[in-house]
């Protein structure tokens, strides 16, 4: 199965048509307690989006609801203009590490091969082609040497990279990641960031639930602030403001340090000098 290395340049943002992810009025309740309420989200293709918010804000639930993993009380989700059921080939998912039992008797390569199961269909077994695709995905995350290791013998960062490779092998247009940077070592963090940049260069869209506000401007193009309801969403430079953060974190913001000029320099999202914030305590 061959894939084009580059995609056509993405459409201009905010034009509605050609959105990678379009969420409208998404509502999820758990035992009468609202977890997500009336959430709208429009994600143009070809960029990296961070979803941030305090604990319990519904960030993970947003991903799971978009992917149909938890039932939504209301709302619609379109992936590249189609409902999820027709767009499964275009959607990838990197869950939190705690979502599986790592003592399961399987190897890293095995787990990554699971990403090929959809294109295999029923009953067919993964063959050499699938194994090779899995192996090259592992190479991309720097885990080729550990392919045959049983997964409980991997470090936290390595396990995270296995999940990443599994999503990579699917080679989807849109990938959702749930706190991929949580508790990983520096090597893994660099690997993930490189991967994200690579995906963006190929025109893919990545939506990431992110826990570390510090690095949002460094790693991401867009940000969505979420606290049961959507507070704000858009390019980091516009949306990642003190005001919005205060709204999102509901006054639980401890203090804000201003390190540099509060007015954003144009296009300088990777420039630490233009980064607004030092440490924010949620």
């Amino acid at each position: 199965m061959t894939h084009p290395d580059t995609r056509p340049a993405p459409a201009a943002p905010h034009t509605g048509a050609g959105l990678a992810v379009a969420v409208h009025d998404l509502t999820v309740a758990y035992r009468d307690k609202p977890v997500l309420w009336d959430v709208d989200l429009e994600v143009p293709p070809g960029l990296l989006l961070a979803v941030v918010g305090p604990n319990g804000a519904g960030k993970s639930t947003l991903l799971k609801a978009i992917l149909g993993l938890v039932p939504a009380a209301a709302g619609q989700v379109l992936i590249h203009g189609e409902p999820l059921a027709r767009a499964r080939d275009r959607v990838g998912y990197v869950p939190q590490r705690g979502s599986v039992d790592w003592d399961f008797p399987t190897s890293a390569l095995d787990v990554v091969t699971m990403g090929t199961y959809r294109r295999l269909g029923w009953v067919r077994r993964p063959g050499r082609r699938e194994r090779e695709a899995a192996l090259s995905a592992l190479e991309r995350v720097g885990m080729a040497a550990l392919a045959d290791r049983q997964i409980s013998q991997l470090s936290g960062g390595q396990q995270q990279r296995v999940f990443l490779a599994r999503a990579l092998v699917q080679d989807t247009d849109v990938t959702f990641m749930d706190e991929p940077f949580q508790g990983v070592d520096a090597v893994t963090e660099r690997a993930i960031v490189d991967l994200l940049k690579d995906l963006r260069a190929r025109g893919r869209t990545v939506v990431v639930v992110h826990h570390d506000l510090q690095t949002v401007p460094d790693y991401f193009d867009w940000v969505t602030l979420l606290n049961v309801r959507r507070i704000a969403s858009g390019p980091v430079a516009e949306v990642f403001t003190e005001e919005n953060l205060r709204l999102a974190y509901g006054g639980r913001v401890g203090f804000l340090e201003r390190k540099a000029d509060p007015t954003p320099a144009p296009g300088g999202r990777d420039d630490p000098a233009t980064s607004h914030f030092g440490r924010i305590r949620p």
């Binding site: 009468d32 609202p34 309420w37 009336d38 049961v228 309801r229």
Partner: peptide
């Protein structure tokens, strides 16, 4: 629109 619980807690 403020979120209101639509059912009384059981």
């Amino acid at each position: 629109m403020t979120p209101t619980a639509t059912r009384k807690p059981r």
